[in-house]
Design a protein around this nucleic acid. Structure first.
Lengths: 143, 143, 143
DNA sequence: TCCGTTCTAGAATATTCGCTT
DNA sequence: GAAGCGAATATTCTAGAACGG
């Protein structure tokens, strides 16, 4: 792989690194045995969390922990897809984790721009207060 | 050096020294192993920051610090190009830093004139206010 | 290393990882040629930034950039010690950077607990507002 | 005046840990 | 018990500020 389509025109898009890396990861046929699109392209699977964490993650991120990867997924609004057989009594035949996001769709890389990183509720609340308080204009600008 | 090509067409171009030095630096085939144009000529790469800082910078500037060089780049509106393969735990094969500016293009030296040194945001804001406020003529003269 | 001496006396010390790593780094005789205490033990020196960044930093941190190391130092209130001879025209004989903090003293590891990480001015201001505003108790509890 | 160099800080994302639901 | 989240620190990129020429 040479250039990501997102970064090919010389100026950087405002899509956070996590999303472009995730996209690259899921697309890359080299790692399809560990992470790949679902059949209909609306979600992605991680097989064998252990190997995925130790072999794939450190190539793109500054860690090798599945938990940190999942934390980022949640920060960007991805949700785990719960499979029926996973919750049952019979042990699933495969270590298979699935995540989904409305704007993470195979063949629609431009939709990544609509995936927004969450911000803490406290910060959001305080920002709202500042917005509605005319007296805080000076503080906002300078602080 | 006698005449800069930038100043040969009858009107004096006031391109700051930093930009002409940067251009010379990137063009110079002698230092292409440490700093050179990207393949398509829309950005430039610095390889091996340490050697670049100690060997190349002092030939053009009054320092040998990568940090000061980067500060100048940002002052003139250059942005770092973030590569996806860097940023992992596993060290990339090459120490490669890339910067880009809309008007820093291989083969278009005359565009350097459009690269403007930034002034502080606060100063910029105040200047904008003065521009749109007719009553501030006296202030404008003094400030 | 089993137990940090900081946590052995019955109460848990919450010294951030950066400070304990920095302490270990400066103390370690193996790396004294790149980072070590000053003669009187009130500051520390980094020699040869380039080698320090590439060889030492990644053993303790998830990066190999001097700039990131310096950002952390400033976050914790360390200040660069400016040497007279470094600013002169004659090139200094050695690449020597020195940092200091009131509570970073050789032989007094327990003082690390007094080094506080800085927090943004805006956050600090907003927190102060919440503290002095009784009506925000519910928000504080829930958010 | 504007530019150059240095040191420090802002701001956004990234990583980790522990709690809540 | 697992999924999701809050909060603190960590890393990166850019900007502020002071000073000198």
């Amino acid at each position: 792989m040479q250039d990501s389509p997102l970064a090919m025109d010389g100026y950087s898009s405002n899509v956070p690194a996590f999303l472009t890396k995730l996209w690259t990861l899921v697309e890359d046929p080299e790692t399809n045995h560990l992470i790949c699109w679902s059949l209909n392209g609306t979600s992605f699977h991680v097989f064998d969390q252990g190997r995925f964490a130790k072999e794939v993650l450190p190539k793109y991120f500054k860690h090798n922990n599945m938990a940190s990867f999942v934390r980022q997924l949640n920060m960007y609004g991805f949700r785990k897809v719960v499979n029926i057989e996973q919750g049952g009594l019979v042990k699933p035949e495969r270590d298979d984790t699935e995540f989904q996001h409305l704007y993470f769709l195979q063949g629609h890389e431009h939709l990544l721009e609509h995936i927004k990183r969450k911000v803490g509720d406290l910060i959001q609340f305080l920002f709202g207060q500042l917005q509605s308080n005319p007296g805080s204009a000076g503080i906002k600008r300078k602080l």
